[in-house]
Design a protein around this nucleic acid. Sequence first.
DNA 1: GATATTTATCGTAATATTGCGATAATATTT
DNA 2: AAATATTATCGCAATATTACGATAAATATC
Lengths: 110, 110
Amino acid sequence: MGISKSEEFSVKDNRVSKVAKALSHPARVAILRLLHSKKTCVCGFIVDELPLSQSTVSQHLKELKASGLIKGEIEGPRTCYCIDEKDWEAAKNYLNDFFEAKSENTKGCC
Amino acid sequence: MGISKSEEFSVKDNRVSKVAKALSHPARVAILRLLHSKKTCVCGFIVDELPLSQSTVSQHLKELKASGLIKGEIEGPRTCYCIDEKDWEAAKNYLNDFFEAKSENTKGCC
DNA sequence: GATATTTATCGTAATATTGCGATAATATTT
DNA sequence: AAATATTATCGCAATATTACGATAAATATC
């Protein structure tokens, strides 16, 4: 069907998958790396750094904004995109918790 | 086009996005949580735990195997799926490095 | 106010993902 | 060998994603 039954999974699993989805394309990873390294900020410069058209970059920025990882502020004719530090930390923790989660009871196999 | 220009991005960014893609669906997160918590192992039990059909779960398992995060060993009529601990650690580190990456030179804005 | 600059959005096309039922493939049990 | 159990794969349909050019929208500059 193509529609994902996300309602049927736990809040925790949805949180992890939502963050992961934002990071699931190399362009978005690259954008976040640029923004987080504080090398740039303005959309136009991001476009210069990536092998994608302006409209495509703009679309990725929109998705990242929707995921909550970045904010965009209009500054004159430009838009300044920045990491939302709180959400960045939260995302980091969601993934970290996921990877750290262990259990006492071990199953026999493996 | 729907085709992603991943070749044009860095190895690092592709590594992160590949792991993230594996985690980008709550069902796969749930499966990995089950396997990593060592509560189960066999495909059939995973099917019982998820609100998805057997064929759909099998497909998610295939994707996770392709991502390298899990291994599957045939045991009689069953298949025993397990976390690949080395790749699990590697994936964790890729994401952690990504989230930790900082820079000295700060830009003016934000 | 006309022009240039910058970014967002629209429309479109190609491909990918998600999901399921049906069926095949494999191994065990009777 | 027939029946059963378990998992993988195929075929299909619905939806999502990725990408780009064209164009609109907003602001700055001349």
